[in-house]
């Protein structure tokens, strides 16, 4: 049976992990490669590295980091942050990334999805969508939820799939950071609408939240950051509890 995936997300700035980490035993605290290896050993099914560097120098460092990650990590990993051209995507593919995520750039210019998918395959393109409810309508936003667009979540997700996305990563900006759980009905509707996998992001505060989005929300994977980084819910415990609930997960 295909397992539901658990995916830690690491924010990277100028080549280092940003979010606070209180793990012991890492050779270099904050080193994205060491942290990724630790998660992989603990049973993470994939990793996502998101570049939040604001400078050109920071971006260069990120590409070098991707090369190091690819050499040392033995599970698939996705990279994202500021990818706005086929060239950007190609650079990261050659550095060894298994998938890339596009977000704002695809909202601005949807053909970007077609172009990357045509050149590197659908499996390589994850379309990340940030949306929030405005007057009862799920509105796609950019710039970390600050800028609403004309687009509607379900129509945009469908379009992204038709243009060649291999996966949709959906974050509800109404739930992100709240630790109150995911909007499961919205996820279920999205999952039923699409024939490609849906990754749930933003809002997990407990094992039950993740269990809910994987069952009621019919998500194929759950991505989270702080609950893992701060050690609130260690991956082995999360997976063991999901397994006990009858949710198919890969146990190490």
């Amino acid at each position: 049976m295909l397992a539901k995936r658990i995916i830690p997300c690491l924010d990277i700035k100028d080549g280092a992990t940003v979010k606070g980490i209180n793990f012991l035993g890492l050779q270099q605290v904050g080193d994205p490669v060491e942290l990724g290896k630790k998660y992989a050993e603990e049973g993470a099914d994939e990793l996502v590295y998101l570049d939040i560097s604001a400078t050109l120098e920071g971006r260069k460092t990120f590409a070098e980091l991707v090369t190091r990650i690819a050499r040392q990590i033995n599970i698939p990993f996705t990279v994202g942050g500021g990818i706005s051209s086929v060239e950007d995507a190609g650079l990261l593919l050659r550095a060894g990334a298994d998938k890339i995520t596009v977000n704002s750039a695809a909202v601005r210019r949807p053909e970007l999805i077609d172009e990357i998918a045509a050149k590197y395959g659908n499996q390589f393109v994850v379309v990340a969508i940030d949306a929030k409810q405005i007057d009862g309508r799920w509105t796609v936003t950019t710039h970390g939820g600050k800028r609403p667009t004309e687009r509607e979540l379900f129509a945009w997700a469908r379009e992204a799939q038709e243009r060649g996305a291999g996966e949709i990563l959906f974050t509800s900006m109404d739930h992100d950071g709240t630790k109150n759980g995911y909007p499961c009905e919205t996820f279920a509707r999205l999952s039923d609408l699409l024939s490609i996998p849906v990754v749930a992001s933003g809002g997990a505060g407990s094992v039950q939240d993740i269990a809910d989005v994987l069952t009621m929300g019919r998500a194929d994977a759950a991505l989270a950051a702080s609950i893992f980084h701060y050690g609130e819910i260690p991956i082995p415990r999360l997976k063991k509890e999901l397994h006990t609930m009858g949710i198919p997960v890969r146990l190490i």
Binding site: M1, D45, Q123, T215, M216, D220
Partner: peptide, 20 residues
């Protein structure tokens, strides 16, 4: 057979992820 998971309504293609 249940291989699509407990609640999935249809098979997602490509198969992406870990299987036994």
């Amino acid at each position: 057979c249940g291989c699509m998971g407990p609640v999935a309504k249809r098979l997602k293609v490509p198969e992406m992820g870990w299987n036994t």
